[in-house]
Design a protein around this nucleic acid. Structure first.
Lengths: 185, 185
DNA sequence: TCAATCATGTACCAGATGGTACATGCGCCG
DNA sequence: CGGCGCATGTACCATCTGGTACATGATTGA
């Protein structure tokens, strides 16, 4: 692990806990035990650091999902495990996720990268899963969108209220609703 | 309309479009055609302004919902209209909503007010609606949570991808799923 | 008309900000 | 050993930040 990677990892953790918008390079540097000179040295500028952070967070989540999908046959089971994975990290992951998403909604900075992260990939992968279960194209796209929305909405709820149990049962019952929907004509 | 209200309204619009975190009092003042002196005069401080903004946004949304609920008998119809109301304003409302929500997730500032806004009220009102349809307590709570999560997740999707049509059909089909769920034993 | 209250503009403050020039360490390879 | 390149620390810069003191304009009520 290079010194840069070390700084990057600690920066992600700090941003997740304390927010991106309100954190200056100096505050961050003091918080993770380095100097603001180092951050500019390794990442060129504040914008460079943010870009690296976005990339790192995106790759970590996508890697986790890919591994779950690869190691589990049943897509519902993989989905349940991924929900668990995300919800476990809700307190630290959700604030960063939703904060960065607002940048994507408004444009700069890093809007293109963030849009790709939030929009593509996820719903495509989910729709693929439904299609493999024999659902027709139109239905699969909507189900993927709904599942994604449900997961993000429940993640939001967990992060704000801290009520993990309620969100878990909501997710379980949502899966049951989808299963019933698929079995129906 | 007092001068203060005028400034507050324009501030909300500016924050929605350009973000809270990256906007200084001076930038905001220049953007809405006043001086940063005026903002400090009317709101005391930056924190005071943000508090007023949060309060104003919350009240506006809750008023809209209350009016829809009061003027429509069928809760599904009121829900559909409220979704339309929110989705119409997604581009300007969602970024502000999700940005402020990260403040609530992390604590200060205005965490208490924001928590109340995001957590209570909404799901309670929804659960009441389901209970009035004869759903049992446990089921109603979960359905309220799911409906809220679905709406917020789809709002997120609309704000990021701009695909309103897909979100609309997803919402319509979700309502249908709930209706079927309620008719089932 | 005149005072008084509210609103607004100008100018300033101390501190923080992102960024950089420069000097110094440290470890690796010849 | 010597030198060289990466890493790190110090000090500084121009600019911007939130906030305030003070003077002035506008409005209104007696």
């Amino acid at each position: 692990m290079t010194a840069r990677d070390e700084l990057l990892g600690r920066s992600v953790a700090w941003f997740a806990e304390h927010g991106v918008g309100d954190t200056s390079l100096r505050t961050l540097a003091a918080g993770i035990g380095t100097s603001h000179r180092m951050l500019n040295y390794h990442f060129g500028s504040r914008a460079g650091l943010l870009g690296a952070v976005v990339e790192a967070v995106e790759r970590a989540e996508q890697d986790a999902l890919r591994e779950l999908v690869a190691t589990h046959e049943d897509p519902f089971e993989a989905g349940a495990l991924f929900w668990q994975h995300v919800a476990d990290r809700a307190a630290v992951f959700a604030p960063l996720f939703f904060e960065l998403s607002t940048h994507a909604m408004r444009g700069e900075p890093h809007a293109a990268l963030l849009r790709r992260w939030f929009a593509e990939g996820w719903s495509d992968a989910l729709a693929d899963g439904y299609r493999r279960l024999g659902v027709d194209e139109d239905r699969a796209a909507t189900l993927a969108l709904q599942s994604l929305a449900m997961a993000r909405g429940l993640l939001f709820e967990v992060a704000v209220t801290g009520d993990r149990a309620a969100a878990d049962t909501a997710m379980v019952r949502w899966t049951a609703m989808v299963r019933r929907e698929l079995e129906a004509p």
